[in-house]
Amino acid sequence: MGLDNAETLRAEGRRTGMRDEALSDNELIEAVKAGDEDAFAAIIERYRNPITNFLYRFLNDREEAVDLAQETFVRVYFALDRYHTGYAFSTYIYRIASNLAISEIRKRKRRNVLSLTGLFQREDSETEEYQPPDHRQLQDDHLIDGETSQLIQTAIASLPPKYRAAIVLRDIEGLSYDEIAEIMGLGLGTTKSRISRARGLLKEKLKDHF
């Protein structure tokens, strides 16, 4: 759909009270490139919760997750000229978020702070990072009680980043294997292998608690 059509749809949407859900990601991106700032607000509205949730499950730190989610959108905005709408925007934005999260984990390692995840770490574990538990009750965290949820969350955070990203994207965010492979820049077989390995590691870490 061309830009004119997208703008027409948006104008129509405003007139009829429809929101930007009618437009695809790429149509919104084209509108942003054409100078429509409201279209970018629509993109933020569409992805802010999934990205924040993904980063929270990845980092186990809500404040850091929100901060990196905001940074993700800022980077997307300033890189729009380089974004080709031939690719799925959802994988594009998850990839940026994932890279930011991995960078953050590396920064934590460089800070060389004490690891508090020893409960879940074996001696040969690949991770050594500070994972302070976030005890605040989450607004939607009612499916599993807080203590169990925190136990699972800490177990996820103790996984090596390459496994953590894969299992969060698959089992929490519900992305397809193809999408995850594209986000992580891996082959499909490697992606499936990592997800399977991540589930195995997680089961191993939690077996004594359930």
């Binding site: 919760n49 949730n53 499950r57 989450l138 939607d140 965290d141 499916l143 599993i144 299992i167 929490i172």
Partner: peptide
């Protein structure tokens, strides 16, 4: 994992 709550 899918039963974990979501953080908005």
């Amino acid at each position: 994992l899918s039963s974990l709550g979501r953080v908005d």
